[in-house]
Simulated assay, not measured.
Amino acid sequence: MKWNAVTAAAGLIAPAHALLRFGCSRLTIQRLDPLVTPGQNPSPHLHQIIGGNSFNVSMTYPDHDLPSLSTCTSCQFTEDLSNYWTAVLFFRARNGTFKRVPQIAQAGMEGTNGGMVVYYMSDALFDTAQRSTVTAFKPGFRMLIGDASYNSREQARDFRQITYTCMENQASRQPESIGFPKTPCKLGIMANHRFPTCWDGVNLDSPNHRDHVAYPESGTFESGGPCPASHPVKIPQILLETVWETSAFNRKEDWPEDGSQPFVWSNGDSQGFSSHADYVFGWDGDSLQRAMDAHTYVSAPMLTSQSIAEQNKCVVKDMVGEDFDSWLTELPGGNEIF
């Protein structure tokens, strides 16, 4: 899938000063992955998904156009019919059984049913000016960050900004680690997924869902590093924050006898290095570009907000039909621990 490069380059001259931050309720939890394994039901491991309710086993563009097929979204802004998903966190008890870890809402978003907090930024989170120019994603755009097969710190460094925060309270944001926290976290573990911020300006996707996007040539997005010549178009940085309520599993007598941390991703990763997230663009019309072109910080008066109660109502049917909420003798799909 390709985008007209002339149109993409023209977008570079448009002013953009915005940071959006909003909550999204859980749309569904299912063993489906229409980006990596389209058409496969079930997919290899469990995901938690937010966004528009046209999410399905297969979502090939242009046949599956999210804004036209979705009738609701689990996100705050009704214009955002995109889909976002990550793996699911499980607690592995000393006796070898597994329990899904619930998600909790961040401060100010109480009542949200699971889900995540989503950011779209043109500059660093703490920069209220948000002065950089960015070009919004185009219909059919999709990307993946992280790799479900990674099992080492060195591999995880391929992706600069996939981290964890051991949360003492709702305000905790530091320090961040590349692997799972090694000690109990008073509130929970926040999984942070920051997507690349440079696009080749042509391809809406690539075979591995990564090659059409890139990190800045030097530094990081937050330091304002330039995009490489191969990926000259600066796009908004998407940040996903998922707070996993691990506090209910903090009894050390339930942890492994060797004292190692007890949490695993649904793909079997017990170290945290395989953390990954998927994105399929689905904003209605030019609503995202308008929002990024506005001089706002967090607020978005040009977009339509819905209540948390309305967000919670937006769900999709179970297409797999398996139990993931009981105490389980193995991970959904039978994934081995690594």
Rank of each mutant, 00 (worst) to 15 (best):
Q130W: 02
R131I: 05
S132G: 07
V134F: 07
V134C: 08
F137Y: 15
K138R: 13
K138W: 05
P139A: 10
R142H: 13
M143E: 13
L144W: 12
L144N: 08
G146C: 02
D147M: 06
A148V: 06
S149I: 01
S152N: 13
E154I: 09
A156N: 02
D158E: 12
R160T: 05
R160P: 07
R160Y: 07
I162M: 13
T163L: 14
Y164N: 02
C166L: 02
M167H: 04
M167F: 00
M167I: 00
E168F: 04
N169L: 02
R173G: 01
P175Y: 05
E176T: 15
S177M: 07
S177H: 02
I178Q: 09
F180C: 07
K182Q: 14
K182T: 12
T183Y: 05
P184R: 07
K186E: 13
K186N: 12
G188M: 08
M190C: 10
M190W: 03
R194C: 07
R194A: 13
R194F: 09
F195H: 03
F195C: 01
F195E: 03
T197N: 13
T197L: 02
T197V: 11
W199N: 14
W199T: 01
G201D: 11
G201H: 10
V202H: 11
V202Q: 15
V202L: 11
N203W: 04
L204T: 10
N208Y: 01
H212G: 11
A214G: 03
E217G: 12
E222W: 09
S223Y: 02
S223C: 04
P226D: 04
C227S: 05
P228E: 04
S230G: 15
H231Q: 04
P232W: 00
P232F: 00
P236N: 06
L239P: 00
L240A: 06
E241L: 15
T242K: 13
V243Q: 10
W244P: 00
E245S: 14
T246L: 05
F249D: 07
